[in-house]
Structure formats: C-alpha cells, structure tokens
Design a protein around this nucleic acid. Structure first.
Lengths: 221, 221
DNA sequence: GATACCGTTTTGGGATACCAAACTGGTATC
DNA sequence: GATACCAGTTTGGTATCCCAAAACGGTATC
C-alpha cells in the first residue's frame, strides 16, 4: 500500500480513537516524523481528512476538529434525511438474505463483547443498511456522517439499558424492512435517530467540563 | 490568493465549463504548465476535485469524470432527499425577506438574459434555498450535488417551454415556503426534481451519440 | 500485416530544499 | 508589573529532484 493511503489511514485511526484529542494542533512535520513519511503523503492525507471533517484549518495550521454540539445536532438532521430515504429504497427492493447479513452483525454482539466492538457494530449497522439502498450517494452520505459522529459517540456515557434499547430499535427497523413496510421502517428509523441524537448531545453537554479536563475541545451548541 | 486555491478554482471552471471534456485524461505536468504552478498545488487541487467527483483516478493517472447517466439518476434521488428535508426546515423558520431574495434571483432573468446566466441561476436557486434551512450539511450536500449535475445540465437540450415551466415550478415552491406550508413545498420540490431528472437523462441519452462525437465520454445508465 | 519483444520516455508517488509569514521568548522601556 | 518590540525559530506553501512503474514506439519475427 502506498504511503499516502497509509498515513491517511493511520492518522484517521488516531483521531477517531481519540489518541489525538479534539482541538489538538497538528503540524505536518510532527506527522511526518510520527509515521516515517515525507511531507508529500502527509499533505495528501491532511487534505483528505479535511474533507471528511476530521481536521480543519486554524489560521495557517492544522487542528483536529473539536467536538461541536451544534454540528452534531445538524448532522443528526442530515442523517435522518438520507437514512430515511435510503431505508425507503431498501424496502422497495432489498432481498431478505441481505437483511439477514445485517441482523447477523447485531447478533454477533453479546455480554462479553468488548465495548469497542459494540461501538463499531452500532455504526456499521447504519452504514450497511444504507448500502442496501443501492444508491452510492446516500450510502456515502451515511458513512461520512457516521464517521463524523464517531468520536462523539465514543465519548458518550451509555448505560446498558440504553444500549439494549438501541439494539431493539435496530432489530425493529430490520423487521419492518424485511416486510417491505417503508413507512414503518422510516418512522422507526427516524425516531431512533432523533432519540440517539438527544441522548448523545445531552450526555456530552453534561460531561463537557470533564471532557475539557481531559484536554478535549468541546464547543457548546 | 494562494496558488493552491487558484489552480483548484481555475481547473474546476475549465471542467465545469467543458473546456476540458468529460473523459479526458489529465496529467499533473500539463496542469502545472497550463497554470504556471508547481506540482504541489496541482496535486492539492486534484485531491480536492476528486472528492467533488469532478476528476477521478484512471489506473495511475487522472481523468475528468465522464458524464454517467446512472450516476445522474442516483444523484437526483439523493438531491430529492436532502432538498426536501431542507425546504421543510426552511418552512419552519425562514423569514419572508430571505425568500424575497431568492425570488429576486429568478426575476433577474428575462428574454435577453444569456443562456449561461439562466443555467447558473437555475442551480443557485436550489443552493440558496437549501442555505435557508440553516443546516450546513444539507446545504453542502445540495451544493455539491448541483456541482456534479452542472456539466450534464449544461449539455441538456432544453426548449423555451421547459425552461419556463421550471421557473414556474421554482416560484410555486417559493410561494409554498413563504406560507410555511411544508408538505406542499416538499411535494412541489419533489415533483420538480423528479421531472427535471427525467428530462435530463432522456435528453442526454438521446444525444449520446452526438455528445460522444464531440469527444465527451457519456456512459449509459 | 499482425504481433511479440525491448529500449526509451513519460508519469505519478515520494523526498527534500527554500522561502516568507507567523509564532515565540526574551529584553528593553515606561 | 505591564507592554511594546525585536531576533530567532518554526511552519505551511511552493518548487524541484529522484525513482520505479507504466505507457509508448520502433523493430524484429512469424
């Protein structure tokens, strides 16, 4: 694999994994040294990550994008629009076997699954469901939105009950999709997204002080 | 302005203005010479334009993205989802004065307005309407989708009647939005987008042979 | 005439050198 | 003690070099 893709992937992982905190300054030279690449692939990676919203410009330099509560709310609205459109398409033509694959993803999580895995599967559920729509643009929109939400969801304080409720909602959405009931799937998905947005923003707003103490820039709604 | 932004802007204009045809090969060295910049800003511009979908990779090199009829159809579905969501938000809270500004844009076109201007205003209508939603993500989604549609719309054969009908539909959408009638605005917008997609794809499919003769790569649906 | 082969050229990926602007730390001044 | 100022350093933007791989072109072979 080329250095460019390598730097991009590793840097993205460090940002999404919060190894580099939201709001931290980045210098091209630091990245260069950290990954043993020269500035050319580093710059390519930064340009790509900028379009993903993971890094941004801060005057002349680069900054890991802060967690922005107002932005999270807007993303949720965006997500709702594209995910609902996608699931409606899916209801029209998706095969039951494709839905089984997604359901199996949910099944793969149980009591002794690490928290990190629950997190990943919870995102992939939405991404894979959007992929079934067959519309590349809806799919990419959902994938990119989930990427932007990823760090915030990682910081969210979620109890067992909330996690179980989310899984139940996921299953209900799949059930409606399997029946081809577009209106019901859309309604359930919409409710799910709004609810999860509210919990997310509330949790982060409550934790804002603690998060800042950990060095994470969190800007209010 | 920096060379980087300069190269990006000029190259984008050449592509959108069809001065470089869909499907044409690009070499970094040609761009370098054409705009008098070195390869570093050229590569940055190409990376940006790649995420906009205007250029793509072809093996190891770069290619101006072909007109892809299947893609145009998918973009229309995507547009419909985000634009409808945006106009619904707009109906909730937009001020009449903001709508007046958009209506004035439409008014600015008359019989002796150059075709190029009609084209631009027709796109800006949708972009500015989305901006009124106040949601940055919906706005960017609409703007990017319109950018991707731009070249195809430019190649579309449109008669006076179709253009007049589109303008009437634009006005009707604004009227509904001004009244805050979200359902009606959404219905009108949705119909407008579907209709304009059908005319666009039909026109290009009919002209496909002629367009290819002009050196434009047009891939079928 | 078609085709397989091989040397040349071109091209994108990467590394590095240079510069001007921004930043930093310390000092002198009030 | 606060502040204005200046030299030194850092940093992103740009230009340029190098390289391996791919594209190209000519030639020999069948």
């Amino acid at each position: 694999m080329s250095q460019m893709q390598n730097v991009e992937r590793q840097l993205r992982e460090m940002i999404l994994g919060l190894e580099i905190g939201p709001g931290e300054k980045l210098t091209e030279r630091w990245i260069e040294g950290r990954f043993g690449a020269s500035r050319t692939p580093v710059r390519a990676a930064l340009l790509r990550l900028e379009t993903e919203g993971l890094v941004g410009r801060d005057g002349r330099g680069w900054t890991v994008s802060p967690i922005n509560l107002a932005e999270l709310e807007q993303i949720a609205v965006y997500r709702e629009a594209v995910e609902v459109a996608a699931v409606r398409l899916t209801c029209m033509h998706a095969e039951s076997s494709a839905i089984d694959v997604i359901e199996a993803m949910l099944d793969s999580c149980d009591d002794n699954t690490p928290r990190e895995e629950w997190h990943r599967v919870g995102m992939d559920f939405h991404i894979e469901l959007a992929r079934l729509s067959g519309n590349e643009f809806l799919f990419r929109a959902v994938r990119d939105a989930m990427t932007r939400l990823s760090r915030a969801r990682w910081l969210e304080v979620r109890d067992e009950a909330a996690l179980g409720r989310a899984w139940a909602e996921h299953r209900a959405i799949l059930a409606a999709a399997r029946l081809g009931d577009a209106d019901e799937a859309a309604r359930l998905l919409s409710t799910h997204i709004v609810g999860s947005r509210d919990r997310l923003v509330t949790s982060l707003a409550n934790d804002r002080r603690g998060l800042r103490a950990r060095g994470f820039a969190v800007v209010a709604a």
